[in-house]
């Protein structure tokens, strides 16, 4: 019974929501809006559970004195401060906004900026021309990089007697033809995979997400 009820609900909602997609009738639109509301209502309840588990995780870390347990106090400190300023007056509170703009945003930007270094290290590994595929990748990447940089076209037009703006034209050809066609191949496969997976879930054939078994 514990697994039958979710399966029945999944079947009903799956079929109804699929049909709703093909119907512009006000009842259908209303039903879609209603289900979205339910989803929005479930979210905050789940967030409470999320916050409880977060606190629990860090309390355990402090109790067990695991490595770097002291940082867990920072989590509590940050949480209490943000809740203390944000909860009574909402997100427009000056202190709350200041903390968000000057602490959270710069920290997230710092993490994002690490991406540049990770791209460099990953590219170095990917572009080592050890195999034919890696060599092709290296050549394509060089053309795209030179084509993307304005100096590529400028240098080509100055130094080469053949054609104008060849680097940017070659870059665009690579992006529009081999790149786009392979991406579309992946997208078609993904779309069919999504439909197939959805059918398996709607008809209760795929039950692994319920923990497997019957």
């Amino acid at each position: 019974m514990r697994r039958q009820v979710p399966l029945i609900l999944c079947f009903l909602f799956g079929i109804v929501m699929m049909l709703v997609e093909f119907s512009p009738h006000p009842i259908s639109e209303g039903l879609r809006a209603e289900v979205i509301k339910w989803d929005l209502i479930i979210g905050p309840f789940a967030l409470v559970i999320g916050v409880i588990t977060l606190v629990h995780t860090h309390v355990i870390r402090v109790k067990r004195r695991v490595e770097h347990w002291q940082y867990s106090y920072l989590v509590f400190f940050g949480m209490i401060v943000m809740v203390a300023f944000g909860l009574p007056t909402g997100p427009k509170n000056e202190v709350f906004e200041w903390l968000f703009d000057n602490v959270q945003v710069p920290m997230e930007a710092t993490m994002f900026s690490l991406l540049a270094f990770f791209i460099a290290s990953a590219s170095y590994r990917a572009f080592r021309a050890r195999t034919l595929e890696a060599t092709l990748l290296l050549v394509a990447a060089l053309i795209v990089m030179i084509g993307n940089a304005p100096i590529g076209d400028v240098l080509w037009n100055e130094l080469s007697p053949v054609g104008d703006n060849i680097p940017s034209t070659a870059r665009q050809w690579i992006l529009d033809n081999p790149n786009l066609s392979s991406r579309r191949g992946i997208i078609l496969g993904v779309s069919l995979g999504v439909i197939s997976q959805s059918i398996r879930i709607i008809f209760g054939i795929e039950r692994s997400y319920l923990g497997g078994g019957d």
Partner: peptide, 28 residues
């Protein structure tokens, strides 16, 4: 789901709820 998988394998004692935890909704 993981709890049910451990139960199905007959190893409920090996399941630790603390190993599955919420971190944050913020991407970075």
């Amino acid at each position: 789901m993981v709890k049910a998988a451990y139960l199905d394998e007959g190893r409920p004692d090996a399941y630790s709820e603390d190993d599955i935890f919420f971190v944050t909704e913020s991407q970075f």
